[in-house]
Simulated assay, not measured.
Amino acid sequence: MPMASTDIEAMIVEAFPDAIVEITDLAGDGDHYAAKVVSAAFEGMSRVNQQRAVYAALKGKMGGELHALQLTTGVPE
């Protein structure tokens, strides 16, 4: 069963309350998304660690309910 974009956003915001999250359904199928996540919590983290933190916030949904997520992360300017 596909995962709703609102569920993805809610899980990310739960882990990073200050996050600005933009999610795009890339294929219209609820399985392939792009997400941009900007949070002050990423300050001092490498891009790899920022992305690992977001994947951890998804609590194991990647590869199951959520098939693909193109992820862009950053800190507020």
Rank of each mutant, 00 (worst) to 15 (best):
G63S: 12
V13S: 02
D29C: 14
A35T: 08
A57N: 03
A4T: 08
V13M: 01
G60D: 10
S39W: 06
T24H: 04
Y55V: 02
V75R: 10
F16P: 04
V37P: 10
I8G: 06
V75P: 05
H32V: 13
Y33T: 01
V54S: 07
I8P: 00
H67G: 05
K61I: 06
I23S: 04
D29G: 12
H67D: 02
P17K: 11
V21I: 15
G44R: 15
K59D: 08
I12N: 15
M3F: 02
D18Y: 07
G44T: 15
L66V: 04
A10L: 00
R47I: 07
R47K: 12
D7I: 01
S39Q: 10
P17G: 14
G63C: 13
I8D: 04
I8N: 00
E9D: 01
E65T: 05
S46P: 15
G44W: 15
K61E: 06
E14P: 01
V37F: 07
K59V: 02
K36E: 08
G28V: 06
P2A: 12
P2T: 11
L58E: 05
D7H: 02
D29V: 12
Q50Y: 10
M3A: 01
A68C: 04
G60T: 12
G44P: 15
T6Y: 01
L26D: 05
S5P: 01
A40P: 09
V37I: 15
D25K: 00
P76N: 12
K36R: 14
V48K: 12
Q50F: 15
T72F: 07
A40L: 05
S5R: 00
T6I: 00
T24E: 11
K61F: 03
G63M: 15
G30F: 12
A53N: 09
R52G: 10
F42I: 15
I23P: 05
E9I: 00
K59I: 04
G74I: 08
I23D: 03
Y55E: 00
G60S: 09
A35W: 07
A56E: 14
M11Q: 03
Y55F: 02
I8M: 02
G74V: 06
L26N: 05
K61H: 09
A4C: 10
A68K: 00
P76Y: 13
